[in-house]
């Protein structure tokens, strides 16, 4: 495959950036999107140019490190992560636009890399369970009803990639925060901190400069892990409940 890439290049956080055009050849349809970028970077290095910086780690769709907006869609046209997006979803001769996540709370570090530590601070604010450590407890010591376990697991799938924020027209982190609130809130282990968790996490989310939710629904469409839109309503329910009890 032969492709034209228009990629956001920005040397550092302060410098202005711009879209730059590159041509790549001999791209196999079986390559992942990141492997295609690797091919471009090899060529750039040989030419003595700076390679395109992008985040990546596991390259099997489970870590949430990679993330870029491809043709206006977070992680590209398929519902998966950029590392699991294959070039067969594009046609020979295509022009592909590649941009970093755009949100005030996710400042660009370089090229396609953004600083997502705002997510870490939201988790620090309450996305955990305070429990004494030690040997693993017996599996049946705390019974969890199957529907609750399913709800918790569906929300625990969030890998914190930030596609929800990137896709949201308001740069809102409601879907990300709701995933952790619902994950821990639906389990007995999470019950003691249920109220403070949602209040503190939402406070931190607002303090980080994420936008408010207008239920556009773009986040749930972009989420590679399929966190559903009604999770936001479930978090609002938790928030109202906790506010009444405060």
């Amino acid at each position: 495959m032969r492709l034209t890439l228009r990629i956001w290049r920005q040397p550092d956080a302060e410098a202005p950036g711009a879209m730059r055009t590159y041509e790549v050849e001999d791209i196999s349809p079986d390559m992942s999107f990141l492997e295609m970028l690797d091919t471009l970077n090899e060529a750039l290095i040989l030419q003595g140019e700076e390679p395109v910086a992008f985040d990546h780690d596991c390259r099997e769709g489970i870590c949430g490190a990679c993330g870029m907006v491809i043709n206006g869609q977070a992680h590209g046209p398929e519902r998966t992560t950029a590392c699991q997006l294959h070039m067969r979803h594009f046609a020979d001769g295509d022009t592909i636009d590649v941009e970093p996540w755009r949100a005030a709370a996710f400042p660009v570090v370089r090229d396609l890399m953004v600083d997502r530590s705002a997510f870490d601070r939201i988790i620090e604010a309450g996305g955990y369970v305070t429990a004494p450590t030690g040997s693993a407890p017996e599996a049946h010591a705390t019974p969890v009803p199957k529907p609750d376990a399913d709800t918790a697991f569906a929300h625990a799938e969030c890998i914190g990639c930030g596609a929800c924020v990137a896709a949201c027209p308001n740069g809102s982190a409601m879907l990300f925060t709701s995933a952790k609130v619902n994950h821990l809130g639906s389990l007995p282990q999470g019950a003691p901190e249920r109220d403070t968790r949602v209040l503190d996490m939402v406070d931190q989310m607002d303090a980080e400069g994420f936008g408010g939710c207008t239920l556009a629904g773009e986040c749930a469409t972009a989420c590679p892990k399929g966190i559903p839109l009604p999770s936001i309503s479930a978090m609002n329910r938790e928030f109202l409940r906790a506010s009444r009890r405060r």
Partner: peptide, 24 residues
């Protein structure tokens, strides 16, 4: 809400795409 939302997304995507429904 609008002020907050516009401030949270200061840079637009170069590759614009029609998003959400007309009502939204």
């Amino acid at each position: 809400l609008s002020r907050r939302d516009l401030a949270a997304r200061p840079v637009k995507y170069a590759h614009a795409r029609r998003r959400a429904s007309y009502a939204t």
